[in-house]
Amino acid sequence: MTDTCDDWGLLIQADLDGELDIATIARLARHIETCPACAGLQRDLLALSSRIRADVPRPTAPLALAASLRPPPSRRGWRPVLGGFATGAALAASLALFMLTPRPDPDADIVAGHIRALQPGHLMDVVSTDSHTVKPWFDGRIDFAPDVRDFATAGFPLIGGRLDYLGGRVVAALVYRHAQHPIDLYVWPATGTAAPVVSSAKGYAVARWTAGGMAYTAISDINPADLQEFARIWAMR
């Protein structure tokens, strides 16, 4: 990297951290197009961030810590560990304790799959903005035919697809883009109907719905309102 590129480092980082305004993002993109050193730095920083998020564990607080906020169940004359803690708080704390107990996380696979897909070269198996190219690609690769649609006119262009593995089965993943951010849409057969519900998991927005014999789960780092809109357009088609 040359001396003149030193100033771009913090901006490249801020972009990856989602802290840059649109105008600066555009300025940065123009520089990176012409500067292999900065393009390399961007690639390295992105890969590092993905690895940290995928590989470094996030342990939960020991149950003893939450339990210290509530009385032992079978002893009389309990004195609160924290000054002035009363039964109302103890009740709230034991509810929180319940929420802290380890349980299977339905979003963990989805988030992991999305992060894996963000690694260079892993986003798509079939790269095409044409739904008539993407749809047949799934034929023979999976035992169901996902509905493949493009929503470019609504700001969500289809950019490709791939196979992924979620919850013990192979699923279709359709990849869309919105304002430079990828959206993964996982599709697999399911019964019933459910309107889209948006939640968040580990910093990603996640939307789920069920329609037309398929379950859909969309995940992206776009803001939840935008993902809600994406899900709404899909679900009402």
Partner: peptide, 9 residues
């Protein structure tokens, strides 16, 4: 309490 895990980490 919702931030106890983050505090511990």
């Amino acid at each position: 309490l919702p931030h106890l895990d983050a505090a511990y980490r």
